[in-house]
Write a protein that binds this DNA or RNA. Structure first.
Lengths: 236, 236
DNA sequence: CAGTGGTCTAGACCACTCG
DNA sequence: GAGTGGTCTAGACCACTGG
């Protein structure tokens, strides 16, 4: 029932920051001092301090000390996004994927830059519409490195999502995501069954495996039917 | 120069997951086994496993074992957002805030729900336009609990941002953020100098302090001039 | 140099799950 | 009961910083 010691130390320290007893930039007591104050081992204090540092509350410098972090933390909210199929499943609806294009394509300048490859290089390209019940929720355009996924064009993307296929080949080691709003152009509008010019939420993703960009995707969502949510801290 | 032992263990384990040697759902060796295999103390293995768990690669259950995490991880990219003033400063541009409204207001049903307060209750309300050079980058509408920030209406929001004022009162303990796309209505369009109907990226935030919702904000951004970015893993 | 954080060890006790 | 993860201790060595 009782919280572990490192968690109690975290709570106490966090209280002193919230209180204003310790303010941004202040130096806080050393590990040895806190160890004596709370009557725990140094490793325990260390864990509390490390976690508070990871969470952005503290800044530590070896040989110098531990300091209360500045303002940046407060408006820095993580946003987590799952893949469409799960997103839809989590809401209790049926997911259906409709592949509308699957071919080899030449990289134009923009996509080539995103994939860190030469312009004109040939890669695999797919377009898939993801349906939530009878409404299109996402239109996915994806470029994939053939050396990473040689069987990409042979997949049935109504049965497995492109992202799931890539994951079966190897775990993704790193990723980047950009979130943008855009007005729908004619082609995308048609796929998502919205009017041309309607607002869309667009996710642009790049994923790395084995040290290279293996996939670049642009995911278009109708603004009325899609949003991203994120939290930090404990919302009581 | 050489990486700490816990980091080496992490790298090794991660490699086995990337390889496909361990697949999603597989049970991996126990801490005692890994301890013998790598020749390190159990605390060291423990730290490696804890961090991989925090990063989403592993799932652990006390009394049962440690398992390779499923697919969700791969498409789950955290997005970090800083406040506008910093964002603009980071790009090397001048930030200017223009307060356009600052008053007491009654909560309508929607905002009341967001703030977990009674409809009709009186709170403080502000509207501020944030400029990057000579272009408006954000139109901020904010509702604030008077019991938390009694001096809110007396602030000069051309000199301090609303969020900075709230932070000076107490640290934010928890937050929630929703990211949406919307078409600009007439009022917002005018403030952001875009056409009515133009796509906007909208952030809806709620922040908690002392266990209550203390602020609710809607931040409107012109789609052409604003996007959010996030990364995970090491992009080499 | 003394003080700091970063890491590590070899043990230990506990709560939990499963057969 | 045996095996698991979760935590904790009391020491230790190191790299780094500052005066």
């Amino acid at each position: 029932m009782t919280a572990p010691a490192y968690a109690k130390v975290k709570t106490q320290l966090l209280r002193r920051i919230s209180n204003g007893r310790w303010r941004a930039g202040d130096r806080i007591p050393s590990e040895h001092e806190l160890m004596r104050e709370f009557g725990v081992a140094r490793m325990t204090v260390g864990r509390a301090l490390r976690e508070l540092t990871d969470e952005g509350w503290l800044l530590r410098t070896q040989g110098v000390g531990t300091f209360v972090g500045g303002e940046p933390r407060a408006e820095s909210h993580p946003v987590e996004i799952r893949n469409v199929a799960e997103e839809i499943a989590a809401r209790g609806h049926a997911h259906r994927a409709e592949p509308v294009r699957l071919e080899e394509a030449e990289l134009d300048d923009e996509v080539a830059a995103a994939m860190e490859r030469a312009s004109g290089e040939r890669v695999f390209f797919s377009e898939v519409v993801h349906w939530e019940g009878d409404q299109p929720l996402q239109f996915e355009r994806r470029w994939v490195a053939p050396d990473f996924a040689p069987d990409y064009l042979a997949q049935d993307f109504s049965r497995i999502t492109p992202s799931a296929h890539l994951l079966k080949i190897a775990a993704i080691e790193a990723g980047e995501q950009i979130v943008r709003a855009e007005a729908a152009d004619r082609r995308v509008a048609a796929r998502l069954q919205v009017k041309t010019g309607a607002p869309l939420l667009v996710l642009v993703r790049r994923t790395w495996a084995r040290g290279r960009v293996v996939s670049h995707a642009r995911l278009f969502h109708p603004a009325q039917r899609f949003q991203l949510a994120g939290r930090f801290g404990d919302v009581k």
